[in-house]
Amino acid sequence: MSPAGRSPRPTARGGSRRTATHRGARSAAARAATRSRRTTDTTAAEPGGRAGRSARRSARRGGARSSAASRSGAGRARLPRLGLQVGSRQKMALTVAVVLVVVLGAVAWFSPLLSVRSVQVEGAQVLTAEEVTAALDVADGTPLLQVDLTEAAGRVAMLPRAARVTVDRHFPSDLRVLVEERVPVVYVDKADGPHLLDATGVDFAAAVPPPGVPRLVTERPGRSDPVTTAALTVITSLPAPVRAQVTLVNPGSAADVRFTLGADRVVVWGTPDNLGRKAQVLAAVLTQPGKVYDVSSPDLPTIS
């Protein structure tokens, strides 16, 4: 057959070229994928790789957190135990202290080693130690802590001459009684003889008045009498040199206090007020001769 009559055949070269090209592309892609997997595997497997380093850092941070948490947990576990131990010690110490206080208190309350063996009396001038001790009425051997000091002082204060009384314990075995006696300011004559009155008008003794104590003349002498109170207020306000000369106090009323100096000099004082001013004026006018010195109006004193 002539060449012109043959059917053309596909060119084997052109088809082979296309097939080879397609296969080459697949092979290249496969090789690239293999290289990529190897690179990824190698990178992941390498100790110095980024993933390795990140993993190690994460592991270190996790380990540090775990260690810190463990230490914190252990510390929290120890703290309650420590608190319990301290609390137990404090409770034990408090219990021991309470027991000691109770024991010592019982010993002091009942022990004969801390009991009354002597009574010391101080301040008494006229009252005797025997009178004070008898009024105190505390038996020898009484535990000091069982002595009611207020009641004991009250019993001694019942003595008429006692103005103030204080009772103290002196360990291990003494009671001290401090007595302030009443001081006579005036005396009054009564049916059974002279009676002594102190600055408050208390009639505390039927006795001979000491030297220098003036006589008070009034209808109802006593603490509740206004005339007596006014007279005593004036007498106790006088300067010592003038007061020492007073021999008689004979107020006509609470507003008309009079007293006599020596034998015959009379002072008209008036009301028991302006005490300091009247005392100054009286000291001045007493330097003048006279029988009656009226300072009831201290700005206009008179001498007659």
Results as ranks from 00 to 15, higher is better:
L196E: 05
R35D: 15
G276D: 15
D203C: 12
A68D: 04
F259P: 03
M92N: 06
R164A: 09
S70E: 12
A69Q: 07
R6A: 13
A45E: 15
V102Q: 02
V138C: 02
G15W: 11
A153T: 06
G24P: 01
P298G: 08
G14L: 00
T95H: 05
P8V: 11
T200H: 13
G87H: 13
A240F: 03
A59E: 15
A4L: 11
M1Y: 11
R53I: 12
Y293R: 14
V267Q: 11
V267D: 08
A28S: 10
L145Q: 12
L216W: 08
D189W: 09
T260C: 03
L159C: 07
V99E: 02
Q125S: 05
A231S: 02
Q85G: 06
V285W: 04
V98F: 10
T302R: 12
S237L: 04
V234F: 06
V202T: 14
V267S: 12
P194I: 12
P301N: 14
D256H: 08
A33V: 07
P289L: 08
V185P: 03
V217D: 08
V101K: 06
R258D: 11
P47S: 14
Q245E: 13
G5Y: 04
L113V: 06
R182H: 08
K278C: 09
A135L: 06
L261R: 09
M92S: 10
D264A: 11
A163I: 00
M158L: 12
A284Y: 13
T133Q: 14
V257R: 07
I303Q: 12
V183N: 04
D198S: 01
L100K: 00
R161G: 10
F204Q: 11
E130V: 05
V96Q: 10
L79F: 08
I303F: 13
A12L: 10
F110I: 01
V179F: 01
M92G: 07
V292F: 06
L144R: 02
R60Y: 13
V98C: 09
R9I: 00
R53H: 13
R57C: 03
L286R: 10
G270Q: 11
G193C: 11
P194H: 08
P10L: 07
A230T: 03
Q120M: 00
A191L: 13
V285M: 06
V188G: 06
P211V: 14
P80S: 12
P239W: 05
L175D: 02
Q90C: 00
N250Q: 07
K91N: 04
Q146G: 10
G15T: 05
T287L: 15
Q280W: 09
G62P: 01
T233N: 04
S224Q: 07
T260A: 05
T166A: 15
V147N: 05
D41M: 07
M92D: 10
A124N: 14
R155W: 10
L136K: 01
